[in-house]
Nucleic acid binder design. Structure first.
Lengths: 328, 328
DNA sequence: TTGAAAGCGCTAACAG
DNA sequence: CTGTTAGCGCTTTCAA
């Protein structure tokens, strides 16, 4: 790469000191009472030669990088993709940038990434945590690194978080299947995980089913298995229990479920899934969705984090955002 | 945040010089013939106190950030999401990290991002460029910043790139509709853009249609319009031309197309789309796909870029990767 | 109103 | 084999 201009080049070429240039470039011209003429001269020259400060040096000096780290499980999941998008926009309004990373179900990789971001002096973290991450996040907290969790939180960790009303959402989704759709046997398909959001969804399902004195039928899918196995498992679960309705705990389970239903022509058409997905309205049977309020979640996450970074937060902030049932 | 240990803290605490510590930490212990004992002492101590070098300072000093910038149009498009994922993995194997960003159809934002990345001393760029980006990319090139384009390239720009065999893919997709599926009237739905990959796909369609002496029926969709308008436009296009087959130039157009077909019950079931999408096998009518070879593209992109960064490239590298027709 | 100079944490040339 | 030191580009205190 061609050598880039530095602030001292600018100063030299203009025959003034770096201090003056720095002040002007950081909008401290009037505060430091630098003359109009001087200011204009510098600004014009900088624009003309296209000088851009070296952010690395700036960050090294100030200790702030104006960058936030966003860690999600899987960026190709539409829920995370959309929320990443929104978060990036809001952060941008505050002058912050986002670097994001999928941890793809790999705890060690996730730990490395957190460390990496920390090494790069990231100003704060936004994390959709998995169970194995408790320790690393704990460490961040101990070092007073600003952190906000979203989508789920970790039980034995006192942190800021923004989550959805999982319990109520699942409850309403299940009620909808049982009452409006008149389903007789509604099963729940969830992942074999202790993640809090999944537990909430489970509780909601349980409460709705038990409230109407129906039988609880729950199938847990191991997250790491190949999709084909999941499909078979769902197929068996639906067939053996003669289900006519299913509540899926996440959108990717619903996708596998649809594949099973379609491929084996399973006689079931009352479906609800957590999280939206473009195909839910396109597919037969259509899938109703318990949709999380992505813009609100994103907004809150960013606000909380920025506040904390600016030292303006008093105590932990924990937000629960309502879901919306989208009927199809 | 708690103050972090620096290399000089380590040196002081151990009663040795920073040089020694630095050499050991950078695996130059034997090269600089530092004693086993010393090396071990430092390594142990560093592990014990959990010291991590400040990457900012390191980058500032060395001029390398070991980070690559990845710019895509829309990270929630499954094609880009998957390729981002793969690129990240391959880059990781070389010790590089990826920062990625959606430009969401906003040229100014894209320019800013490129500038931003450049300011952060990114070592190289991976870009799926849009037309408005010619200038900025040109500037990067002029400054000898390593760049690889993918998915498309820019006509009047001599760059490294990795693209798919768009022409051949579209040709085979169209032939498939006309011959295997016996479609009589096959239209093409594409975007109103001059992007090279779209032109290639168009040419392929044209060649197949003309080769069989059929009529060319092409509809161009304005990229920025609300999806509802797109749906209406597609509906009208299919109805007015009494199409029984369609070739979609991208997966998101196919999604809108499916919505139109489904909502208005259009009598058409011979569909092919560029790029895969999870729902193509789930939906009725099923959509065959001209699938791009994502792992190969990702691998190539990373290899080319790393080579260039290491100064090991001789001249431009331009790769065209075959597509695969996935029949449904 | 402006400038000199210290120092953020690190690497590496040079000296011993 | 190890230490001293300059300097990457920037901000900011202190002095003028």
């Amino acid at each position: 790469m061609k050598k880039r201009l530095s602030i001292s080049d600018i100063a030299k070429n203009l025959g003034i000191s770096v201090t003056t240039v720095s002040f002007i470039l950081n909008d401290k011209a009037k505060e430091k009472r630098i003359s109009e003429a001087q200011t204009k001269k510098v600004l014009d020259y900088v624009a003309q030669v296209g000088y851009k400060p070296n952010q690395l040096a700036k960050s090294l000096r100030t200790g702030k990088s104006k960058t936030l780290g966003l860690l999600v499980e899987d960026i190709s999941n539409s829920f995370f993709a959309n929320i990443a998008d929104q978060i990036e926009k809001f952060a941008y309004d505050f002058g912050y940038h986002i670097v994001y990373c999928s941890m793809n179900n790999d705890v060690n990789r996730a730990k490395e990434l957190i460390q990496l971001f920390y090494d790069r002096q990231i100003d704060g973290f936004i994390i959709a945590p998995t169970e194995g991450l408790t320790e690393v996040i704990q460490r961040l907290l101990k070092n007073n690194v600003p952190v906000v969790l979203f989508d789920r939180h970790l039980e034995d960790l006192d942190t800021n978080y923004v989550i959805s009303e999982n319990h109520k959402g699942a409850y309403e989704g299940t009620r909808f299947l049982l009452e409006e759709k008149q389903a007789a046997r509604v099963g729940m398909i969830t992942i074999d995980s202790n993640q809090l959001q999944m537990r909430g969804r489970m509780e909601g399902y349980k409460e709705a089913v038990c409230g109407l004195e129906k039988k609880m039928l729950v199938e847990k899918i191991v997250r790491e298995q190949p999709e084909e196995e999941t499909i078979q498992q769902i197929r068996a679960f639906i067939a053996e229990n003669q289900l006519d309705g299913v509540l899926f705990a996440t959108n990717y389970l619903a996708l596998s479920g649809l594949k099973a239903i379609k491929r084996y022509n399973l006689p079931i058409d009352k479906l609800v899934s957590f999280d939206e997905n473009a195909l839910f309205s396109l597919v037969e049977p259509a899938v109703s969705a318990i949709s999380q309020n992505i813009p609100v979640i994103a907004r809150q996450v960013v606000d909380i984090l920025i506040n904390e970074i600016n030292g303006k937060s008093e105590g932990l902030v924990q937000v629960v955002v309502p879901c919306e049932l989208i009927i199809r």
